[in-house]
Nucleic acid binder design. Structure first.
Length: 419
DNA sequence: ATGTAC
């Protein structure tokens, strides 16, 4: 990297501005949090793309990703970079406030955790029960799939490789959590109200759609002899082959993810009610369901553009958002301030400080147990890559985006279920 | 993040 070309604006702004000759500016809400050199290099590569509209906005949880950094807002004019949108299309959060209070919960939370684990398949894979039978999850899953199946047929007819004989699996993965940083939690707000929250996306089918079009975009670059600083910056242009098909498929996957979160939340609520350990309750006092990995069309600085939020949440003025911390740390319910320089966005979490492999080496079981002592959750070796120590301090991340969102609730986790 | 291949 040619460091001489980097210039931080001297202005007293809440974000840093990185200007490089003949590249679009990078505006980074990273004051008080570390931005690794490899992430900065990825941002500089991205800033050289000619169709970036105005500038790139970097959220305080930014870290290295595939093609470009996670925690980044990429406004583009008449083009989309499929690898920037990623493979977990429509990944995001849902949260619900319930009528339960802290003292309605049993002393031992293990049974609630077990009930959730039994109600929502976690980790890789799909439902193995016969959902056509009397299984309690069958009806909502079939209902959700009925709103998706026609459009899926359109995608599969034009791009049979996306289908690959997995039609039934797509339905059977609705209502399943996945793995990695996906989780289900029971939490408390400052008024001792119980909240339910979960993080998940479009599972195998979204991955397949993303991967397929990333490869098509690469082939387009080769065919048109376009050289890029990183092959994962391959893009599809409006009017060119595959652009409309990509948008159609991505929108479908985003809808799949949104419904997946709704369906799972229903499974969690029903499972908690069936335990018999809780008084009667309502669970939809307030529902927030937001993507943090998606592309959509919006108007910014007088132009209609594509906005890719790769690990970022829309924060238009008044928008409700969810910013989760890692296991045990807690999460924030926020409202957007409509900061136009961020393209109305905020961070999607705390952001990793180390890779999964490094976390498994560096973080001990004892440290994980201490950091999650107050949470009913996994404490085994397989979860160390998700331990709080592998993530940036969430409070510093929130402080760095005080001009993007207002904090409404800080939620403290009691139970955390992970794949 | 995912499913499959190595």
């Amino acid at each position: 990297m040619n460091i001489e070309k980097i210039h931080y604006d001297p202005n007293d702004l809440p974000y840093e501005v990185i200007r490089i000759h003949e590249k679009k500016p990078i505006k980074a809400w990273v004051k008080g949090v570390a931005l690794e050199a490899a992430a900065l290099q990825q941002l500089i590569n991205l800033a050289s793309m000619p169709f970036i509209h105005k500038h790139i906005a970097v959220m305080p949880d930014a870290h290295m990703g595939k093609g470009t950094t996670v925690g980044t807002v990429i406004p583009t004019f008449k083009a989309i970079i499929p690898a920037a949108v990623g493979v977990d299309l429509g990944c995001g959060m849902i949260a619900m406030a319930t009528t339960l209070k802290a003292n309605d919960l049993p002393d031992n939370l293990r049974s609630l955790r077990t009930a959730i684990e039994n109600a929502v398949p976690v980790g890789k894979g799909f439902w193995r029960d016969d959902l056509a039978g009397s299984h309690p999850a069958a009806k909502p899953i079939n209902q959700a799939w009925s709103t998706l199946s026609d459009r899926w047929d359109v995608i599969a007819a034009k791009h049979p490789k996306v289908d690959d004989g997995n039609y039934s699996r797509n339905r059977l993965q609705l209502g399943t959590l996945g793995s990695g940083n996906h989780f289900i939690e029971i939490l408390l707000d400052g008024g001792d109200n119980v909240w339910l929250m979960l993080h998940s996306g479009s599972r195998g089918v979204g991955n397949r759609i993303g991967t397929y079009f990333i490869e098509l975009a690469r082939k387009e670059m080769t065919r048109n002899q376009i050289n890029l600083p990183d092959k994962d910056l391959a893009y599809l242009s409006e009017g060119a082959d595959y652009f409309d098909d990509y948008l159609y498929a991505v929108q479908w996957a985003q809808d799949y993810a949104y419904l997946n979160r709704q369906v799972m939340m229903g499974q969690v609520i029903e499972a908690l009610k069936r335990t018999g350990e809780l008084p009667e309750f309502e669970a939809q006092l307030q529902v927030i369901n937001c993507h943090h990995n998606y592309v959509t069309q919006e108007s910014h600085f007088g132009e209609t553009v594509w906005v890719t939020r790769k690990g970022a949440v829309r924060a238009q003025e008044g928008d409700w958002g969810i910013i989760p911390g890692s296991m045990g740390v807690g999460s924030y319910i926020v409202r957007g301030k409509g900061n136009r320089e961020s393209f109305n966005s905020c961070s999607h979490g705390a952001g990793r400080t180390m890779s999964r492999s490094q976390a498994k080496k560096v973080i001990s079981l004892d440290r994980h147990a201490a950091d999650t002592a107050h949470v009913e959750c996994r404490k085994d070796e397989g979860i160390l890559d998700e331990s709080p120590g592998a993530y940036k301090p969430l409070d510093a991340v929130m402080a760095a985006q005080a001009d993007l969102v207002e904090i409404v609730h800080k939620l403290r986790p009691l139970v955390c279920v992970k794949g």
